[in-house]
Design a protein around this nucleic acid. Sequence first.
DNA 1: GTGGTCTAGACCACC
DNA 2: GTGGTCTAGACCACA
Lengths: 121, 121, 121, 121
Amino acid sequence: MDYSENRPIYMQIVDHFCDQILRKKWTAGDRIPSVREIAVKMEVNPNTAIRAFHYLQDEGILYNERGVGYFVSDNAFELVISLKREEFIKNKLPGFYNDMKLLGFSCSDLDELYSEHHGEG
Amino acid sequence: MDYSENRPIYMQIVDHFCDQILRKKWTAGDRIPSVREIAVKMEVNPNTAIRAFHYLQDEGILYNERGVGYFVSDNAFELVISLKREEFIKNKLPGFYNDMKLLGFSCSDLDELYSEHHGEG
Amino acid sequence: MDYSENRPIYMQIVDHFCDQILRKKWTAGDRIPSVREIAVKMEVNPNTAIRAFHYLQDEGILYNERGVGYFVSDNAFELVISLKREEFIKNKLPGFYNDMKLLGFSCSDLDELYSEHHGEG
Amino acid sequence: MDYSENRPIYMQIVDHFCDQILRKKWTAGDRIPSVREIAVKMEVNPNTAIRAFHYLQDEGILYNERGVGYFVSDNAFELVISLKREEFIKNKLPGFYNDMKLLGFSCSDLDELYSEHHGEG
DNA sequence: GTGGTCTAGACCACC
DNA sequence: GTGGTCTAGACCACA
């Protein structure tokens, strides 16, 4: 977890979970680690971990079985994809696109820019 | 000013000032409107406006003459460009690029995606 | 805090914090008192205290963990030393030195002058 | 005049006048340039120049003959010396001395430090 | 609990 | 007129 970043810790956990799902590390029906395990592994306050679980539960990506744990929903993959796609197009694309143009870059520059500055990271 | 946005008001003012400089509306040596004028025009508290002025003064983009007002530095344009370029490449590009790839888009899709969803906005 | 002095309150707080670091009262990784605690202890408005924290954060001397507090950076001591040294040599020394010469004092007089007028103060 | 410096413009003018007197450029009975001449030469608002004249008049260093101009008082040199000496010892010495010690310098270092960093300035 | 932001309004020095 | 500082108090997100 990056405490100095602007993004809230619990959203960084959410992002991490979505990544796991998008990369098929976690698939429908999988039981995911408990709140306590997550909190310990990520060195985070349990309250903070809970917020991430609740967020994903609200979105229908996880579901909870009382006394057992949290599980990946059947349609988690599709939900994550559509959620991310919508966020990407509505929130991230316009700002990024305008900045890009204002700074004199074009879409075809991006691959090169990325590999140049973050290629090995 | 967009109060619902995540970005603080004073940073939105900073962005606006940078825009003015990038678009050559304000050039080296120009006196920019007073704190009070900005506060009235943008409908914010003078203290909020001052925070934007201070931020840009720290960056060397503006300078102050006591009792007279704020002025655009000689190298303001270059400073803004390099500041924005650095922020773009270091902070915005990697997250955007990774999301883009993860969602199955490529750089050549961006122009189309943008004009489709934000073309007339 | 000395309200009659020319130096702003928040810079007096900054000076005090730097002193703590120079005197090794606060060392790398220490959590320093919260904004509210400082404000109460020094009898200033929390906003005034925050300005001091932000100043030192910008200089890299403190860093912040959201919801937790402010901490002393690893290289805080070196940063304070170099900051103070630079300020001393660039800003304070020339004016002082010129005054000293103009008034007919020499460096070897200083110890005596000081102990005579401020020795027991 | 240095508009970016902390010291007020009118005090910078005062300092300049005192310098002239200490260096015997201006001596008792000399008529000094008019407010307007000073304002033009120093590229300063006439009001600002006037404040400097008034300050020195209050201290007894200058006197005014209505319709004629400002003149250097008979005891101007002694007044400036004692004024500066007092200010030096009371206000400047203690802060400077403490900083010097805290940064690990001693009086005997000053000549070298000065000539090294400001020798040709 | 932590800090971050914003408003409203005051007072000041300076030009 | 200009900006600089400080206070008081509010609301918010985050841990």
